[in-house]
């Protein structure tokens, strides 16, 4: 690409950036705060339920909470409600573990027509896969560093 064209591109990109309609950051953040906060409060209630009702210890209660929240996220996705929550909640519905469940169910459900192995089976992990890859790898790395420093 010649220099003149590059300059033209640069100018256009800056111009587009300047003129582009922007997301309403304040509104988005307030909604994310509320939706994320509510989901975590529900998580706290589930956690407390696990501790008081099922007599679980802290670790068990965490696992219990994760399982229940994932169930809720998967169910709401299946019922077609989670994408509506996501439209308003933004990161407030993506970041909690229910959003992780949404990212697992939605592609799997969408690609069911491509069959149960390459549709549902592999698409379950189209987004969750990278999360597990990076999360688990990082944890192994942390464990090993901890081992050598100890």
């Amino acid at each position: 690409m010649d220099v003149k064209q590059q300059k033209l591109n640069k100018e256009y990109q800056i111009y587009v950036q300047r003129k582009m309609p922007k997301s309403n950051l304040l509104r988005d953040c307030i909604l994310a705060f509320l939706v994320g906060g509510i989901i975590c409060t529900i998580g706290q209630a589930v956690n407390n339920l696990g501790k008081s009702y099922f007599n679980l210890n802290t670790e068990e209660a965490s696992a219990f909470t994760a399982i229940v929240m994932i169930f809720i996220g998967a169910l709401l996705t299946g019922l077609g409600v989670y994408d509506d929550i996501g439209k308003y909640g933004g990161a407030g519905s993506v970041v909690p573990i229910t959003g992780f469940a949404n990212s697992i169910v939605s592609p799997a459900m969408e690609f069911k027509k491509e069959g149960y192995v390459f549709g549902v089976g592999s698409k379950l992990f189209s987004i969750a896969g990278p999360v597990l890859v990076y999360g688990i790898s990082a944890s192994v790395l942390v464990g090993l560093i901890y081992f050598f420093l100890k």
């Binding site: 670790e59 696992a63 219990f64 994760a66 399982i67 994932i70 169930f71 998967a74 169910l75 996705t77 299946g78 019922l79 077609g80 573990i97 992780f100 469940a101 697992i104 169910v105 939605s106 799997a108 459900m109 969408e110 069911k112 149960y116 549902v120 089976g121 379950l124 969750a128 597990l132 999360g135 688990i136 944890s139 192994v140 942390v142 464990g143 090993l144 901890y146 081992f147």
Partner: peptide
Amino acid sequence: AFVGGVRAAAGGITAAVVFGYLAAVLFNP
């Protein structure tokens, strides 16, 4: 270092796989 991480998160991972699969099979977009 290899066993501990996933063991601690096993509940969540398994729930995600099982509930994710069930929801995907039972519902349609």
